[in-house]
Design a protein around this nucleic acid. Structure first.
Length: 172
DNA sequence: TTAGTGATATCC
DNA sequence: GATATCACTAAA
């Protein structure tokens, strides 16, 4: 029996939550009752203003405001004008931390994940503690986790570019 | 390898 | 108001 994950799950440091979220299942219930499910295969952690790869590195703005909010909030943003990328806020309030959902087991790109899960900008700011349409489940599967440097942030500088905050789950 | 795409931030 | 930037994908 799958267990719905308590939003408290995200109420801790992003680096603790990240490897735990890999292997969990993202569920999105459509208005017609259909439930879309996808096991999370890969996430990346973005942590703090000093993390040059994080949106919050350039300070608190209207766009990044959500990153500073409370854990369990969904942060969706538009990248390159056509791709929705989904993040979950973790950690304490006023700490800009987020987990980017990078891939599901059937998809290998963050925009494909949101596209296939039918997630778009209307989910920006949704609170997992008070939402009937989207949640995470634990079915007991525990993948082996390996880490790798995050992708697409070559501009972040030598240290942040190479830090291994990308968490990839093993195949089932 | 390159084009396409549009919100955001930054620069007049 | 204008333009430079960007955590991507698909096509070639």
């Amino acid at each position: 029996m799958n267990k719905r994950i308590d939003p408290e799950f995200f109420h801790r440091d992003v680096l603790d939550a990240a490897p735990d979220l890999v292997g969990k299942i993202l569920v999105h219930r459509l208005p017609d009752g259909t439930e879309l499910r996808e096991r999370i295969a890969e996430v990346e952690a973005y942590r703090g203003e000093e993390d040059k790869g994080c949106h919050a590195a350039k300070g608190r703005t209207k766009r990044t405001e959500l990153l500073y909010g409370e854990s369990g909030i969904i942060y969706v943003y538009l990248c390159y004008g056509m791709h929705w990328l989904m993040n979950v806020i973790t950690g304490e309030k006023d700490q800009p931390q987020g987990l980017l959902l990078r891939a599901g087991v059937r998809f290998d790109g963050p925009a494909k994940l949101t596209k296939n899960m039918m997630i778009d900008g209307s989910f920006n700011g949704v609170d997992l503690r008070d939402c009937e349409e989207i949640w995470f489940e634990d079915d007991g599967f525990r993948p082996d986790i390996r880490t790798a440097p995050r992708v697409g942030i070559d501009y972040a500088g030598e240290y942040w570019k190479d830090v291994e905050w990308r968490f990839i789950g093993s195949e089932e």
